[in-house]
Structures are given as structure tokens and as C-alpha cells.
């Protein structure tokens, strides 16, 4: 499954079937991307880390 990085336009490929909500890093520009839908596949720049995020 392939798509394009919305930040730099580089090809983004998935080895396994992606999951909605999954975070990946663009290998070209390094931006964090979030899979927003899988059918059809859509990705967007992931939200910035918020202050209350963590474990």
C-alpha cells in the first residue's frame, strides 16, 4: 500500500496493512504522519505532542 507524504510529497509505503491511528515517520522529511483512514488510505501530518501526553 502506497501513498504520498502530505508534507514533502515523498512516497510512503507500508510493509503491513496500516491501521487507522497508526503513526509513521516519513523517510524523506522525517515528519510524523498519522493514518487517518485505511479504505481508501489517507494520511495527514500527525498532531503535535500535547502537554498531557504520555504513559
Amino acid at each position: 500500500m502506497n501513498t504520498e507524504c502530505p508534507e514533502c510529497g515523498a512516497a510512503v509505503a507500508f510493509d503491513e496493512a496500516p491501521m487507522a491511528g497508526e503513526i509513521i515517520e516519513c523517510e524523506e522529511c522525517g515528519v510524523e504522519l498519522e493514518v487517518t483512514a485505511v479504505n481508501p488510505l489517507a494520511i495527514a501530518v500527525a498532531p503535535e505532542v500535547e502537554e498531557d501526553w504520555g504513559e
Binding site: 491501521m19 487507522a20 491511528g21 497508526e22 503513526i23 500527525a46 498532531p47
Partner: peptide, 13 residues
């Protein structure tokens, strides 16, 4: 219940 899917959530699934 999740928000972003980290490696942890994939392993839990």
C-alpha cells in the same frame, strides 16, 4: 480505546 496507534497498541491488538 485508543488515540494514536503506537507499536504498543499494535502488539496489544
Amino acid at each position: 480505546l485508543h488515540s494514536r496507534i503506537r507499536m504498543e497498541e499494535k502488539l496489544l491488538v
